[in-house]
Simulated assay, not measured.
Amino acid sequence: MNRLIIAVTLSSALALGACKKEPPEMAPPPPQNTTPAPTPTPAQTPMAPQPGSQSHFATAMSGADTIYFDTDSYNIDAEDQAALRRQAEYLLQYPNARATVEGHADERGTRDYNLALGERRANSAKNYLVSLGVPETRLRMVSYGEERPVATGSNESAWARNRRAVTVMIEN
Score class of each variant (00 low, 15 high):
E102S: 09
L84S: 00
I76D: 06
T137W: 07
R86D: 10
L10A: 14
T59Q: 15
L92C: 07
Y128T: 08
D77P: 02
P42A: 15
G103N: 01
P31A: 11
V134W: 01
A78I: 12
K21A: 11
T59V: 13
Y90H: 00
Y94S: 05
E102G: 05
D77W: 08
Q44N: 08
R98G: 01
E89G: 10
Q32K: 12
A125T: 05
A116Y: 02
N75S: 15
A125D: 00
Q44A: 15
V168T: 08
Q50T: 10
R140D: 05
G145N: 03
A82S: 13
E89V: 09
D106R: 04
L16H: 04
T59L: 13
T110S: 15
L139R: 06
G133L: 09
T152V: 11
R120E: 09
P51M: 07
E156P: 08
P36M: 15
V130A: 07
H104N: 12
T71I: 14
R121N: 04
P46T: 15
L10M: 14
P49H: 06
L14V: 14
L4R: 13
I76Y: 00
N172R: 12
P23N: 09
V130L: 07
P29V: 10
A160F: 08
Y90F: 07
A48P: 05
Q87E: 02
S124H: 00
G52F: 01
E102P: 04
P24D: 06
F57W: 02
Y94H: 12
A64E: 13
P46G: 13
P51K: 05
G133K: 08
F69G: 05
T59R: 14
E146F: 00
P40N: 07
Y128I: 04
G17F: 02
E171D: 10
A82E: 12
C19L: 14
A97H: 00
G17E: 06
M47D: 12
T59E: 13
Q44P: 12
G109D: 03
M1D: 11
A160W: 01
H104I: 00
L4V: 15
Y113C: 05
N123T: 14
N2V: 13
H56C: 07
L139Y: 06
G109E: 05
A7L: 14
E102D: 13
V166M: 03
S55F: 01
P29A: 08
G109K: 03
A83Q: 04
M47K: 15
M141H: 10
P40Q: 12
Y94T: 05
T66M: 11
R121D: 00
P149L: 01
H104S: 08
M169K: 03
P46K: 15
P46D: 13
Q87S: 05
A64W: 07
A82P: 04
C19P: 02
E146K: 13
A88K: 01
I5E: 14
E119A: 06
S53E: 04
A88D: 03
Q93I: 03
R86H: 10
P36D: 12
T9M: 12
N127K: 11
Q32S: 11
E119S: 04
P51Y: 01
P40T: 05
P51Q: 06
E22L: 13
K126W: 08
F57C: 06
T39W: 14
P38I: 11
G109R: 03
A165V: 01
Q50I: 10
A165T: 05
N162K: 02
R164I: 06
S55Y: 02
A158C: 10
T45G: 09
A88V: 01
D72A: 10
A122P: 06
A105Y: 06
L91Q: 01
D106N: 12
S62P: 06
